[in-house]
Design a protein around this nucleic acid. Structure first.
Lengths: 332, 332
DNA sequence: AAGCAAATTGGTAGCGCTGCCAAAAAAACC
DNA sequence: GGTTTTTTTGGCAGCGCTACCAATTTGCTT
């Protein structure tokens, strides 16, 4: 079956029906410029009668700037990104901007291709995760003339606007916390770090901090693929099978940490006396477990909100550090 | 600081630089119509040299149909919707379609407003959650002439295409399962059902099924606000405070059920011997808990994929029932 | 070599709207 | 009453691209 376009009502038809000029209709509809109350009523009546829906494609082409904001994000499975989108979309909707997105699967090459596709829509801004991009992506974004916002990672040079926090600092503080608590035989369970560079940064800073205190990481287990509760569980199981006397494990994020937590529950490993668990992200679910998860809470929704606000306000280039909060919890 | 548009390279400039006509460049770039290999090379060289990025706004306006697909979803916090988006976006990207979205917060009025805003982009399709919409929304979508896809709920009349499963059937099967297992004093913990009509349908069918077996629901606890692990925990706590001899509790979804599960763990309530727990959605996390969660797994990603495929293929109006799977788990 | 079909190419009229400018109408002034 | 302002209005040229058509070139055939 072929799809047939309904005959569309155009602005010209509204103008005709209302007995006014096209530009008058345009002014009334955008509430911009001046027109009399009587004209307004006639136009609105015609709009209502004909069921006119303005065409923003045409409007955007005719005017200079678009009200599209493009998101190029690594994943929708990792709740981090829906959270950012949620914060941003609320602000954008208030300001009559429209969010567009596509998903890279943590693949920089795909990021480049998708960013290019996005630029074809001439968005007001492109929002990307992190600050590592291919040379091609950077060049293209620079040349595009549209605003670029890099989200969730401040450890690097920003192209234009950056909103988030330092993953390195998060890794450091996590290590410092575990050390302060007296843990000395520390392990790590993580997911694919080549793809998730932010998790990689946390891990390397975590290790550096441990090294700096002459308490190097005892063992680590890296699982291929994305982070998940099941992978966290599996990772801890494998790590413990190899390494007998760990007293704490740092996980690449809360999903993984919850998996580890469940493993301990299932195996009767006492937390934190026998084994401490520390995560990252501060998901709500970690607060409802029998023992609240020790973790770092990141301002994901706020990151989206602030990013959107800066774009809407057309703010100058800047890096906004939203920080994070260490949650002591009861698992470490 | 004011944002300044970079001087944009247009198709006409590429044509000039390549020494060919505009339509030739257009044909080469879209790989549509015929042109010689030599011409192709010259055009591509000029594109490369000038860093030309096609303008899809202009392209869409000039051609008839757009390659935008608009999603109007209730929430991004409830993982259900990111899952659907994920499935859909993969298929759409393969077919060079672009996903656009906005979030209604389960508010039908907002849905109407956002759907209207979406139609202004003249999308190829609008995708909505469920099949309950305001009269205004329905009228507008009907008049728009674009494809309409209703997701995740088959219990109602579809406007055009519907993809999902029956929430009523899910409620019925959940009840039948608990009865089959021998539970007779059954309670319910849910979140705001006025807004989440799909959860409401599951609940009412669940109750009807219980009634049909002369085992009416013993008690229920409905919490205001969205579903969350914390609310599930709180809900079960309140329910048990009021009602002493329940032997099973049905939750509005897995998030809520996990909260209940954690409550039992924390309070030392034996599962399922003392109290059984049953959820809905089949989240991955429910498979990694010490006792796998008894629940119904819904095909969320597949819903998005199928929906996108039907739109891309411009399929005729139809309702596609993807079904669901009851997971026995170990909590009921 | 002429004749015809097929492949390739360029010109140009819109797509529906906004922005600019000048014209017309209304209001305010002396 | 006749200006001078101010407000309101309509006309129309694009925005950058695609679709259509006609013109040109190429390749074959006889």
């Amino acid at each position: 079956m072929e799809f047939k376009h309904q005959p569309t009502v155009t602005l010209a038809e509204v103008a005709e029906a209302a007995g006014v000029g096209e530009s008058t209709v345009s002014r009334v509809l955008r509430n911009h410029g001046s027109f009399s109350g009587k004209t307004r009523e006639r136009v609105m009546a015609a709009v209502e009668r004909l069921g006119y829906v303005p065409n923003r494609i045409a409007g955007t082409l005719a005017s200079t700037g678009s009200r599209l904001v493009a998101f190029v994000i690594p994943s929708l499975s990792n709740i981090v990104f829906p959270d950012v989108l949620r914060g941003a979309s609320a602000v954008l909707e208030e300001n009559r901007y429209q969010a567009v997105f596509s998903v890279t699967d943590y693949d920089p090459g795909k990021e480049e291709a998708l960013a290019a596709a996005m630029l074809a829509w001439r968005p007001a801004a492109v929002m990307l995760a992190g600050c590592e991009h291919t040379e091609g992506t950077v060049k293209m974004l620079r040349a595009s003339g549209c605003r670029v916002v890099e989200l969730l990672d401040l450890d690097g040079d920003a192209l234009d606007i950056a909103v988030g926090f330092s993953n390195r600092a998060a890794g450091r503080e996590s290590a410092a916390f575990l050390l302060k608590r007296g843990y000395r035989r520390i392990g790590y369970v993580g997911h694919d770090l080549n793809r998730d560079t932010r998790a990689g940064k946390r891990f390397s800073s975590f290790c550096e901090t441990l090294d700096g205190h002459d308490t190097p990481l005892v063992a680590h287990e890296i699982l291929a693929g994305a982070s998940s509760v099941e992978n966290g569980r599996l990772g801890l199981e494998r790590l413990l099978a190899r390494t007998t006397d760990l007293d704490a494990v740092y996980f690449s994020n809360d999903d993984m940490a919850l998996g580890g937590y469940f493993h301990c529950l299932a195996e009767g490993i006492a937390i934190p006396s026998k084994l401490a668990i520390f995560g990252y992200n501060g998901l709500d679910i970690g607060r409802a477990t029998p023992q609240p998860l020790s973790t770092i809470r990141t301002p994901r929704v706020a990151t989206g909100e602030i990013a959107a606000q800066l774009v809407v306000a057309n703010a100058p280039p800047q890096a906004v550090d939203l920080g994070f909060e260490l949650i002591e919890g009861a698992t470490a």
